[in-house]
C-alpha cells in the first residue's frame, strides 16, 4: 500500500497510508469539536486537508489572490537575538522590510516581559524612534504580560501555584488579583512611551500564560490602550487554545474567562478593542501533522466565523499545527498555512 511522507508533531518524518491520514484528520477534527463544543469541519473540508497534506512536491502554496499578510512576535529578531549577529534591532527591521519583504515587524527586547521592560523603556522607545524613522512598514512593540513574574521572590505577591495545591484558595486568588493590577500598570507604562515614540501598534503576546488572571490583565490593558491611543493598533496574541482557570471566577463582559476556547477568546478580545487577534493552539508532539492541523483548523474556522477583527494565527514552533522544532520544516509550514487560509479563512499569519 502506498504511503505518504509526512511528519509527527515533534518534526520527525513518518510514513502514513491514505487511510491513516484520513483517520487522523477525522480524529483531530472530532477532538477540537468536542472540546470547544463547536461544529466539526465538513466532509469536503476534511477532504481538502487530505489533498493539501498529500500534495506532491515539497512546497505547496495558495493561489496568489488568497495570499495573506504576516505579523510577527518577538521571534522576528533572528539576527541580533537568535543569531547573535551584531546588528541593532532598528537595522534588523530594515533587513526585514527591504530584504525579506516583511509586512510588519515586532520590535521586542530579549527579556520579553512588560515588567522587565518598564525600567528600560526609554532606551526601548529610542530604538522604536530609530526604526520608525527608517522603515515604511508598520512596526509594533511587543512583550508578554507574564504574570508569573509578579510572584515572590521576583515580585511582591505570594505564589498562587504553591497556594492552590495547599488549599489556600482565597490567598491564591488575592495574590493573582494584586499581581493583575501591577501587570496592567506596567503594560500601560510601556504603551505610553511607545505611543510617544510613534509605534504603529503594540503586541500583547502570549496572553493568559499564567491563567485567567493573566488573560484578564491583558484584556483590561487592551481596553485602556485602545481608548487612550485609538490610532495605535493592538495585537492580542493568546497563550493556548484553552484559558487555564488558575483563579476560576473572573469574568469579562459577563463571560467567565477560564475555560474559553479560541472563538470565545476572540469575542472578548474584540470587545476589549484589539485590532488583531492571534489565537495560539499548541501542537501535540506525539500526534501526526494531519491530526494537529485538523484540530487547529476546526478551532480557527469557528473563530473567523465568530469575530470581525482580523485573525492572525500563531504559526511557528509548536503552535498552529507546526512541529515542535526550532528549525521549522518548510513542507509542514506551507501546508499548515494553506489549510488555515483556505479552510480557516484567516486574515494573516
Amino acid at each position: 500500500m502506498d504511503k505518504y511522507k509526512t511528519r509527527m508533531g515533534d518534526g520527525s518524518i513518518c510514513y502514513q497510508t491514505a487511510q491513516e491520514i484520513r483517520e487522523d484528520i477525522e480524529s483531530g477534527v472530532a477532538y477540537a469539536a468536542k472540546k470547544a463544543k463547536i461544529e466539526p469541519l465538513t466532509k469536503e473540508e476534511q477532504d481538502r486537508i487530505f489533498e493539501i497534506i498529500t500534495a506532491p512536491g515539497y512546497i505547496t502554496s495558495v493561489d496568489v489572490e488568497k495570499l495573506v499578510v504576516s505579523t510577527t512576535d518577538c521571534g522576528a529578531a533572528p539576527f541580533c537575538r537568535e543569531g547573535a549577529i551584531p546588528v541593532k534591532r532598528s537595522v534588523e527591521a530594515l533587513i526585514h522590510e527591504r530584504a525579506f519583504c516583511s509586512d510588519s515587524y515586532d520590535l521586542g527586547f530579549t527579556e520579553y516581559t512588560y515588567k522587565a521592560i518598564k525600567p528600560i523603556v526609554r532606551y526601548e522607545a529610542q530604538e522604536m524612534r530609530n526604526a520608525q524613522q527608517q522603515n515604511v512598514m508598520p512596526i509594533l512593540y511587543g512583550a508578554m504580560p507574564n504574570m508569573g513574574f509578579y510572584t515572590q521572590p521576583d515580585g511582591m505577591f505570594e505564589n498562587w501555584s504553591e497556594l492552590i495545591p495547599a488549599g489556600e484558595i482565597d490567598r491564591a486568588r488575592a495574590a493573582q488579583e494584586g499581581a493583575m493590577e501591577n501587570c496592567i500598570k506596567d503594560i500601560l507604562a510601556v504603551a505610553d512611551e511607545m505611543a510617544a515614540a510613534g509605534a504603529d501598534g503594540i503586541n500583547l503576546d502570549t496572553c493568559g500564560a499564567s491563567g485567567d488572571t493573566d488573560f484578564l490583565a491583558s484584556l483590561r490593558a487592551t481596553e485602556e490602550i485602545s481608548q487612550k491611543y485609538p490610532n495605535m493598533g493592538i495585537m492580542f496574541g493568546a497563550a493556548g487554545e484553552f484559558v487555564l482557570g488558575m483563579h476560576g471566577k473572573l469574568t469579562y463582559d459577563g463571560k467567565r474567562i477560564a475555560g474559553m476556547w479560541p472563538h470565545q477568546q476572540g469575542e472578548v478580545v474584540q470587545k476589549a478593542g484589539a485590532a488583531i487577534y492571534g489565537p495560539a493552539m499548541n501542537t501535540n508532539c506525539n500526534e501526526s501533522f494531519a491530526w494537529n492541523i485538523s484540530r487547529v483548523t476546526t478551532w480557527v474556522k469557528k473563530t473567523t466565523e465568530t469575530i470581525d477583527i482580523p485573525v492572525h494565527v500563531n504559526c511557528g514552533m509548536g503552535v498552529g499545527g507546526i512541529c515542535m522544532t526550532e528549525m521549522l520544516p518548510v513542507d509542514v509550514v506551507c501546508r499548515a498555512d494553506m489549510c488555515l487560509i483556505e479552510i480557516g479563512k484567516i486574515d494573516g499569519l
Partner: peptide, 15 residues
C-alpha cells in the same frame, strides 16, 4: 475534564 470547573474549585471540593 471538560473545562467547566477549574483547579481552585477542584481543590476545595477535594477538601
Amino acid at each position: 475534564s471538560s473545562g467547566e470547573v477549574f483547579l481552585p474549585q477542584l481543590i476545595v471540593s477535594a477538601k
